[in-house]
Write a protein that binds this DNA or RNA. Structure first.
Length: 615
DNA sequence: TCGTCCCGCCAGAGC
DNA sequence: GCTCTGGCGGGACGA
């Protein structure tokens, strides 16, 4: 393909460059173009933007203007008025737009609150051993499929896809593209504007944390309405690597534009992977103010040569220290998972009887406890996981609850953390529920100050049950021993763990005693179902199991081998994503709650993976 | 070498 | 059937 500058590009360059006559790629970046676009049109609120005129003014192809306005529209800076015509709304609209995006983030990106509320059976599952869970983890692609993959989507996935599709169309179509025909085609769903909104939502959910483009691509690819599960990318549907590469290209485009708006900034990463950090509309409005002060269009690079976009390494390092503060304590928590599962939370008070703060709080071993910031950080990391991790929030709540039981976190901190999570997840639509929960939490905390440990446990159970959305008997903070369901579950788990080595099971693909166990879940077929269908399963965490699977795929032919390799690549990416936050806390191994992986129906067809005997 | 991302083809949407 | 819109990926650029 010709890489020569177009006539328009030359015009742009001739207008903007120093006149050296040489074509420079840097002078034509989307970020720079966006800066110029903002400079030209931000002078006057509500002015009309004719795309043809914009292209002429800026000396670029019309095609590039589409890229700019699509991203600007996604954050509310412009709105589409008619064909070839947009309206400049300005940066004052960004905040409200971001608020909307933020409120919709959970439902758009991770499913509806109903998805979060899972039946008791699922909670039960969340308490199973790691060994039990790895058996229902993601599965490799169907090695003999050709074109029937779309029918393999579970109903819940389809519903979730509809939810995402609906919400995304609401964002861009209803607000600014109503004149357009409702098409429902995938083209619109993949538009740069929708992708930009999702990208921004990732930042809103990630908070302070940098989001890498690779990570975002995996997630956004997974949340494509036509493919809700990132891990379900089938070779039949397209090359996974290719899709990711394409998505990353688009994210580069979006990131450059958002960078030029100073909504995000590029940060250094250890492995050279591109990552961006959210700055927000405040920084952005300052930028546009400076842009407006320019008397002429400035073509000095706003991207690569702008040092302000690159944070000093020392600053990045300092940020990175946030999670390491509790390293020792968290590692101990993981290490003691089996050894001391029944230590109940004490009600921490100082000698004078007043409650301790997070900073003052120490666990039962005299170590620092987990503070709210740490729990929030873990939550923000988990929030970036693809929506296929149906139990990620239940696991999170379960982990916090476990910390509480071990006396590793202040009760109030744990409750507030979960309440905030619920409130955030439920959003404005269910605000009353979140507020109600907060009140209950507050009341519970007050009550707990006067009650015994076992009564605190009852409240903890109630809280956890509320957080997981399960149906439980209303438990009064003063009642004793209610909510025995959780206690029974815990005892059951202890029995399982004492009688059977879950850690060993992880490394023995197909040999686990719980291989045929029925595991209910809200996220599609279960292991039991797959076993009933006569299909064996692969343990993707076990190299031997993977090797056997790959060997079968190799025997089956190049097509099957490619499919298997793509699946494996995707799984490794997922694996890294899933384990990273826990590794960051210095955990020697995954905490129990982290081994819950997405499930997929194994459909291995003619190429069955080896059974436990290797046959 | 590999991250970055410009560029324009071309197909779908809109009228 | 024409124009508008924009997905997409080749391949050049730059560190």
């Amino acid at each position: 393909m010709a890489q020569r500058p177009s006539p328009g590009a030359r015009l742009y360059k001739s207008k903007q460059s120093s006149g050296s006559g040489e074509y420079s790629r840097k002078e034509k970046s989307l970020g720079l173009l966006c800066g110029n676009f903002v400079h030209v049109y931000s002078q006057e609120e509500n002015q009309e933007i004719c795309l043809d005129a914009a292209a002429t003014t800026l000396g670029v192809e019309r095609r590039r203007i589409y890229d700019i306005v699509n991203v600007l529209e996604s954050v509310g800076i412009v709105t589409r008025k008619a064909k070839n015509c947009y309206i400049w709304r300005g940066f004052s609209c960004v905040t409200s737009k971001l608020d909307d995006l933020s409120k919709k983030a959970f439902s758009d990106l991770y499913g509806t609150p109903e998805d979060f509320r899972t039946p008791v059976a699922s909670r039960k599952n969340s308490k199973k051993t790691a060994a039990a869970r790895v058996k229902v983890e993601m599965q490799p692609p169907n090695l003999d499929l050709d074109d029937s993959l779309s029918q393999s989507q579970s109903q819940s996935q389809s519903q979730k896809a509809a939810c995402v599709r609906s919400s995304m169309e609401t964002e861009l179509d209803v607000q600014s593209r109503q004149p357009r025909r409702a098409s429902g085609g995938s083209r619109k769903e993949k538009s740069l504007g929708v992708l930009s909104q999702r990208f921004v939502q990732l930042f809103l959910l990630a908070g302070d944390r940098a989001v890498s483009l690779d990570q975002a691509a995996i997630q956004l690819l997974g949340r494509s309405p036509s493919d809700t599960d990132p891990l379900s990318v089938s070779p039949v549907e397209g090359d996974t690597t290719k899709l990711l590469k394409t998505k990353v290209r688009r994210l580069y485009d979006i990131a450059n534009i958002l960078s030029s708006l100073r909504l995000i900034e590029k940060v250094h990463t250890v492995n050279r992977k591109p990552a961006f950090k959210w700055l927000g509309p405040d920084a952005s409005s300052k930028t546009v103010a400076s842009l407006q002060e320019r008397s002429t269009i400035n073509v000095t690079s706003t991207r690569k040569e702008d040092v302000s976009l690159k944070r000093p390494a020392s600053e990045v390092a300092d940020k990175g220290k946030r999670g390491t503060k509790r390293r020792k304590s968290f590692a101990r928590f993981v290490k003691n998972e089996e050894a001391e599962s029944t230590v109940e939370a004490k009600s921490p008070t100082q000698a004078n009887g007043s409650p301790v703060t997070d900073a003052e709080f120490v666990d039962t071993e005299g170590n620092e406890g987990f503070d709210a910031a740490t729990l929030e950080r873990v939550a923000s990391v988990i929030s970036t996981f693809p929506d296929s991790y149906a139990n990620r929030w239940q696991n999170y709540v379960s982990s916090v609850d476990s910390m509480l039981r071990r006396g590793q976190v202040r009760r109030e901190t744990a409750y507030e953390c979960i309440a905030r999570l619920l409130n955030e997840k439920n959003g404005a639509e269910d605000e009353s529920r979140g507020d109600s929960l907060k009140r209950e939490v507050q009341q519970s905390c007050e009550e707990l100050g006067k009650e015994s440990d076992s009564q605190q446990m009852a409240v903890a159970e109630q809280l956890s049950a509320m957080a997981t959305g399960s149906q439980v008997t209303q438990v009064s903070p003063r009642s004793r021993g209610c909510g025995g369901t959780r206690e029974e579950e815990r005892q059951k788990v202890e029995q399982e763990e004492s009688g059977d080595s879950c850690a060993d099971d992880v490394n023995k693909a197909g040999e686990g005693t719980q291989e045929n166990e029925v595991v209910e879940n809200d996220d599609g077929p279960t292991e039991c179902e797959t076993t009933q269908s006569g299909l064996d399963m692969i343990d993707p965490w076990d190299q031997d199991s993977v090797d056997k699977y790959m060997a079968r795929a190799r025997e089956a032919g190049p097509k099957h081998l490619r499919a298997a390799e793509q699946w494996l690549t995707t799984f490794r990416q997922w694996q890294e994503l899933w384990t990273a936050p826990f590794a960051a806390f210095g955990a020697a191994s995954l905490p129990e709650s982290a081994s819950e992986a997405p499930k997929r129906t194994p459909s291995l067809g003619a190429v069955a993976i080896p059974d436990k005997n290797g046959s």
